[in-house]
Amino acid sequence: MAASDDQSTATGNITRCLQDWRAGDEDALSRLTAAVYRELRRLASSLFAAESGDRTLQPTALVHELYLQLPSVQHMDWQSRAQFLSVAAKIMRNILVDHARKRHAAKRGGGVLQVIVDAQVDDPALKSDVLVINDALDRLSEHYPRQSRVVELRFFGGLTNEETCDVLSATGVECSQRTVERDWTFARAWLQNAIGPN
């Protein structure tokens, strides 16, 4: 079988790993991480390809794309779902940071010239590179670990307030959707401050 095989084995893998992990198999976590990593990377690649100046795309949260493909996960108890989303959000962050590092490395790499296209420097969004945000986030977590987690889940993972709250609750942190919203407001301000003036 050609076409749809890749897709179904990948999601099948993830499902199996999650079930094993729930059943107590500790090794399953690393298999799960690897499987989710692969899938999210693939989804991310499509997004990177499609991004183009003149087309406006729906803001997609890739973690949700993946989640939609895993009906078995959707029917698990809220704690297992929360665990999955938590892992996926972390992985999403790693993927982005990794991607940004490679992008930078490519520029500094041997024999390749960088030509900056001046027209784009004024775009404020471009001043806020993922690496910069990531570093700032690490610093935020020193004093505000919960808020930093909220950023990781919401901003990197694209989770909703409710899902973020579930994830936090699953790790024993008390929260409500309102706390999440407040934490996000605060963290966002802190990060904005940390990455520098526009």
Binding site: F48, E51, T60, R93, L96, R103, V117, A125, L126
Partner: peptide, 14 residues
């Protein structure tokens, strides 16, 4: 927007 959008723009620009 989710962080990935930002990274995608950087990627495209670079």
């Amino acid at each position: 927007e989710p962080a990935i959008r930002n990274e995608a723009r950087f990627q495209a620009a670079s």
